[in-house]
Computed example of a mutant assay.
Amino acid sequence: MEPGPRQAPQLHTEIISWFTANARDLPWRRADCSPWGIFVSEIMLQQTPVIRVLPVWEQWMARWPDPAALAAEPSGEAVRAWGRLGYPRRALRLHAAAAAMTADFGGKVPGTHAELLTLPGVGNYTAAAVASFAFGRRETVVDTNIRRVHARAVTGRALPAPALNAAEMRLAVSLLPEDDAASVAWNASVMELGALVCTARSPKCGDCPVLGRCAWVAAGKPAPDYVPKGQAWAGTDRQVRGAVMAVLRQAAAPVPRAALHGPADLVAAGSPAEPAALTRLHALNAPEEQLERALAGLLADRLAEETGTGLQLPA
Rank of each mutant, 00 (worst) to 15 (best):
L117S: 08
V190S: 00
G111K: 08
A166I: 10
V173T: 14
D143N: 03
P177W: 11
T140E: 05
S183A: 15
V122A: 01
S202N: 14
C205M: 09
C208L: 04
P120E: 04
G212R: 15
R201G: 00
A172D: 03
S174R: 15
R170E: 14
P209F: 05
L176T: 14
C198G: 01
P224T: 06
R213S: 13
W216N: 07
V197R: 01
A223Q: 13
T112I: 04
G220P: 08
V109K: 01
A127F: 07
A131T: 03
K229C: 02
G107W: 11
H113K: 14
M191G: 02
T112V: 03
V142P: 00
R137Q: 15
A163T: 15
A128Q: 00
P203G: 12
W186C: 08
Q231E: 15
T118E: 04
K108D: 12
T155K: 12
F133W: 10
G156V: 09
A127G: 06
L116T: 06
P110F: 10
V149W: 06
P162L: 12
L196D: 08
F105H: 15
R157S: 11
A161P: 01
S202M: 02
P160G: 10
K204V: 07
P160Q: 07
A223S: 14
K108Q: 14
V217A: 15
G107L: 11
F105R: 00
S183H: 05
G220T: 07
G121S: 10
E139P: 01
D143K: 03
R138M: 06
A128C: 02
P224L: 08
P209S: 05
N187G: 14
S189T: 08
A188K: 09
D104H: 13
P160K: 07
T199F: 11
V130H: 01
L116K: 02
A129C: 06
L119R: 09
A114P: 00
T144E: 06
T199A: 03
A128S: 13
R201H: 11
I146M: 06
T118A: 13
A232W: 13
S202L: 09
C214N: 04
T144F: 07
S132I: 09
L117W: 03
S132H: 09
A188I: 03
P203W: 13
L117D: 02
E139T: 07
T112H: 00
A188W: 10
M191S: 06
R152M: 09
L196N: 04
R157T: 11
P228N: 10
K221L: 10
A200S: 15
A188R: 14
V227C: 04
F135K: 01
V190F: 06
L211G: 02
S189D: 03
D104F: 04
S183W: 06
A129Y: 00
K108Y: 00
T126D: 01
G156S: 08
V130D: 02
G106I: 08
G230P: 04
L176S: 09
A172Y: 07
L196C: 07
C208H: 04
F105Y: 15
